[in-house]
Design a protein around this nucleic acid. Structure first.
Lengths: 217, 217
DNA sequence: AAGTGGTCTAGACCACACC
DNA sequence: GTGTGGTCTAGACCACTTC
């Protein structure tokens, strides 16, 4: 790490092999391997068999972002959590989702709208679609006592997910639900999760104005 | 991992020690150690010396988010990058920043406003404050040929940083610069970086409407 | 074919946290 | 004290990629 930041090893440059470094530092090759592997995970090095190890030219800083369970996020702020189901309906997959969730028009989805409150004030509006082909048990749940997020964590573990963060102007109906003005800037999280190649759920989270998603490097 | 997801080992439960698992799986303890260490890094396990290893009760999913260099982000979309300096001035630290950057009123900051374009269209508006106590060389730079982001990556490596994502309504002047309407929802990234305990720079990035910051789990 | 990193083994000592 | 995970060593074989 010191040699990278002091540019003794410049960006793009091939650094010595593990055996050579082990000799130089007077340690075992496994120790060098672990050090280099961790630097590679952090994005400072690029490693290829036979090709050797290179210093990354433009190290992309990586921030790890926690994807919290909303109830815990609210409770950690010292607020009282509650949620309300605003709508619950089973429908055939709408056009807009067939592509992003790998569905056809015959697939049935559970469409759920819920509001999550912190100390009685609107905190986040959730618009969720659950794939009933993948998670048939969801059709028997009313999600009153346990919210959909936590139910899915328990009952439909996912293997991968796509996440996108963006900003949107509150629509008239969103503004009413979130107790803000139409047009207010709303922080949006879109997330689709998968088990292998089968979509589980696709959700749009609209946070009340002023919300910040924080992290650190 | 299988035993966690199938709940053979339930949340909060103490799992067998490394020696016992090595015997059961017929492998070396170092192999068990690496497996458990990686599961702990991913957030599924909590490990403590003498205390043993427990399954995390509410596993917090972690997403890794790339913090790209804006020029490369634009070029990777196949667009032509250019940037313009809109304002450049050296001032004493304003009240609003003294707290978040650990400054007093005698500290001088370089205040920089720049617009980053993709194929000639506004992409992102950058409002940056550079701490000249920590990075005195910045006062000699005009940032015309190399933008502040990349100059700082080269000349002032940081050890830690705070990041916050949010949404804001475009002000009248922001709307004019970003070629959008006043009030449009704008995706905001606020970032302050540090070298040890000295602040380097604090920056607010306002992306043109429609921008999404994507990642996956 | 050959050289690099990826992974594993069997053993050892240590640091920490709990008793 | 004592038991747990944290780390290291010396050696081995393998997988991948380039030549």
């Amino acid at each position: 790490m010191e040699r990278i930041s002091r540019k003794i090893w410049a960006g793009g440059e091939l650094i010595p092999g593990e055996v050579e470094l082990a000799q130089e530092f007077g340690c075992a090759r496994a120790t060098v391997n672990r050090a280099l592997r961790e630097l590679a995970e952090a994005g400072y090095l690029e490693r290829r068999r036979k090709g050797g190890t290179r210093v990354t030219k433009h190290p992309v800083r990586k921030a790890t972002l926690d994807i919290p369970i909303t109830r815990l996020e609210i409770e950690q702020r010292g607020a009282r959590y509650e949620h309300k189901i605003l709508a619950r309906i089973i429908v055939k997959a709408p056009l807009a989702l067939r592509d992003s969730m790998h569905l056809n028009g015959e697939n049935h989805l559970l469409h759920l709208q819920s509001l999550h409150n912190a100390d009685g004030a609107p905190f986040m509006l959730e618009d969720r679609w659950i794939n009933l082909e993948t998670v048939p048990d969801a059709s028997a749940e009313d999600f009153q006592t346990i919210n959909a997020n936590e139910w899915l964590v328990e009952n439909a573990p996912f293997t991968k997910g796509d996440i996108a963060f963006s900003a949107a102007n509150a629509t008239k109906s969103e503004a009413k639900i979130l107790a803000c003005q139409e047009g207010d800037a709303i922080f949006i999280t879109d997330r689709t999760t998968w088990h292998k190649d089968r979509s589980i759920t696709s959700v749009r989270l609209a946070y009340a104005p002023g919300f910040q998603r924080k992290t650190h490097i």
